[in-house]
Simulated assay, not measured.
Amino acid sequence: MSSNPGQISTLGGITRYITGHDTAGKAIVQTENPAEWKAYENKSMAFTVGYTTSQFPADLNNDADLKKHEEVIEAGQLGLVNPNGTVCRFVDFAPKGAPLMHRTQSLDYGIVLEGEIEMLLDSGEKRLLKKGDIAVQRATMHAWHNPSETEWTRMLFVLQECKPLVVGGQDLGEDLTQAHTSEFASNR
């Protein structure tokens, strides 16, 4: 196990390095810190946020993006998606954890970093994604399931809010009703 705060999986830790500029305009590492993890669903998954933005395009002047990111994290109200911005999140999935069918109102890039994961869709389709594979989730109802008996899976997600999606005259907004706990649905 990693010594990173709150980490529950057997996968290695993550350190976040945020770059910036010195007064001469040279690139520097402005902050460096280990990821802080939060467990969900009886420790069958854990999340850590790498970074958020709250507007698009991001405003890097005078560290406006960094200040807003810190404000969003300190408020403790970040959902799966950050309105008008982006969320970079790591998720560790326990072996044989229960899949949670859900939909976010966002365009998501989900990249498998370690292990394998099944992507389950509400149509009944499923695909096995392996290390290095990417899923581009376009506001679809989906779930993730780690089929391994023993190994954890780690994914990196980048979520960007999208306009409301309408299919067949029906508005398909965020749907977290199948999440097992209100903690998962309300505080990620």
Rank of each mutant, 00 (worst) to 15 (best):
17 Y>T: 07
17 Y>H: 15
18 I>V: 15
18 I>D: 09
19 T>V: 11
20 G>I: 13
20 G>D: 15
22 D>A: 13
22 D>I: 13
22 D>E: 14
24 A>R: 14
26 K>E: 11
29 V>Y: 07
29 V>I: 14
31 T>K: 13
31 T>A: 13
35 A>R: 06
38 K>T: 13
39 A>M: 03
39 A>Q: 05
41 E>A: 11
41 E>I: 07
46 A>P: 05
47 F>T: 06
47 F>Y: 12
48 T>Q: 02
50 G>H: 01
52 T>A: 03
54 S>P: 00
55 Q>T: 15
57 P>C: 02
58 A>T: 09
60 L>G: 02
62 N>I: 05
66 L>W: 06
71 E>Q: 12
72 V>Y: 02
73 I>W: 00
74 E>W: 00
75 A>R: 12
76 G>W: 03
77 Q>N: 14
80 L>Y: 08
82 N>L: 05
82 N>G: 03
84 N>Q: 10
85 G>A: 07
86 T>A: 04
87 V>F: 03
91 V>E: 03
93 F>K: 01
94 A>Q: 00
97 G>C: 01
97 G>K: 00
100 L>D: 04
100 L>A: 12
101 M>V: 09
102 H>S: 08
103 R>I: 07
106 S>M: 10
109 Y>F: 12
110 G>Y: 00
114 E>R: 10
115 G>M: 06
117 I>K: 00
118 E>K: 14
122 D>E: 15
123 S>D: 15
124 G>T: 11
125 E>R: 15
127 R>L: 09
127 R>G: 04
127 R>W: 09
128 L>N: 12
